Amino acid sequence: MSTNTHTDIPAAAEGSEPGPAPDSPANPADSAADPTTTPPHIRSFVHRRSHITPGQKEALDRLMPLWALPYRATPLDLQRTFGRDAPTILEIGFGMGETTEAIAATRPGDNFLGVEVFNSGVGALLKRIEASGLQNIRIVQHDAVEVVRDMLAPQSLAGVHIYFPDPWPKARHHKRRLVQPPFIELLASRLAPGGYIHCATDWENYAQQMLAVLQGEPSLCNTCEGYAPRPEYRPQTKFETRGLRLGHGVWDLIFTRKN
C-alpha cells in the first residue's frame, strides 16, 4: 500500500512503479463523461522515483520464485499457496517489511499475504524472510485493489492490515486516499464472519475519514467507541516512537465483519 515517508512503511515515497497521472480521475464519476473508458479505481501507489540497493535487487532476482506470487485474475487457493489450512491476513502496503516480519513471527499460526508494488520494499521483505526463516509470508507485487478484487475469494480472509497508508494531506488529493467506501466494501466482502480490518495512521484528518468510512460500511462493526488502543501484535516502530515523542498522534481503528 502506498505509505508516507515518516513511518517504517515508506513505499509510496520511494517506489518506482508506474501509477496514475497527477490529474487522473480517482473515482468512476470522474470518467462518466466518456462511456468508452473503463472507470478507474483508486490505486494503492503513485509514480515516484526509488532507490533499490544491490542486496534488494539480488533478493528480487533470487527469492521472488520462492515467496512471491504473480498477479492473476483468478482466486488464489490459499491452502495450496501456504501449504496449510490457516487463517490468512492480508497486509496492504508493507513498505520495507519490518512490521510484517515482526507480526508474522509472533503469530506463527496465521498466514500473511503482503501486497506491495515497489521493488525496494519487496526486496527488503524477501531478505527478511530468508534471514528469519519465516514460512508464513507470501508476497504479491501488484496493485492492492486489483489483488483483492481478482485474487481473493469472498469470505477468504481472517483479517486485513492497512498501516500508515499515504495520507494525501492536501484537500484536493483526498480522493486519492485508499480508504474509501468502495474499497472498504470490497474488503469487507473478502472477510469471513468475525474477520477484522485494522487501520493505523498518524494523520488525524485521515483517521477521521477512516472512522467515517468504516462506520459507514453496514457489514462492519467497530470494536471500540471510536479509535482503538494499539494492539500488542502491532509493534510500535521507531518512526512512530519519535513522532509520539514530538507530540504527534497515532490512531488505530479495528472493525470486524458481522456474523
Rank of each mutant, 00 (worst) to 15 (best):
G195D: 09
Y206H: 12
K170E: 01
V148C: 04
W251L: 04
A188G: 12
P218R: 10
A200T: 00
E225A: 15
D252L: 03
Q215F: 03
F239K: 05
E217N: 07
K170R: 11
H174A: 08
I254F: 14
Y227F: 14
R230S: 06
G194E: 01
A171I: 15
C221W: 11
K170T: 05
P169M: 10
V213N: 00
S156W: 07
N222I: 03
D143P: 09
Q180V: 12
E146F: 14
S219M: 02
R234K: 04
E232N: 12
G243S: 03
C221M: 12
R172A: 03
C199R: 03
W203G: 06
H161F: 13
K170F: 02
V160L: 05
G195A: 08
E232C: 00
E185P: 04
L214C: 13
H174D: 06
W203N: 03
M151V: 05
Q155L: 13
A158M: 04
L178S: 13
D143S: 05
N205S: 15
V147M: 07
R234L: 06
D166A: 04
R177C: 10
N222H: 04
I162P: 04
L157N: 01
L253A: 02
K170S: 02
K238Y: 08
I162A: 08
S219R: 06
N205M: 09
G243T: 07
I254G: 06
A171Q: 12
H248D: 06
F183H: 02
P154H: 09
G247P: 10
S189I: 13
M151E: 07
P229F: 11
K238M: 12
S156L: 11
P169Q: 12
R177Y: 08
H248W: 06
P218G: 04
C224H: 05
M151H: 09
D202F: 01
P229A: 09
Y196R: 14
G243I: 14
E232P: 05
L253H: 01
R172N: 06
A188C: 10
E225K: 07
A153G: 09
K170M: 03
K238I: 15
T201C: 07
E232K: 09
H174R: 14
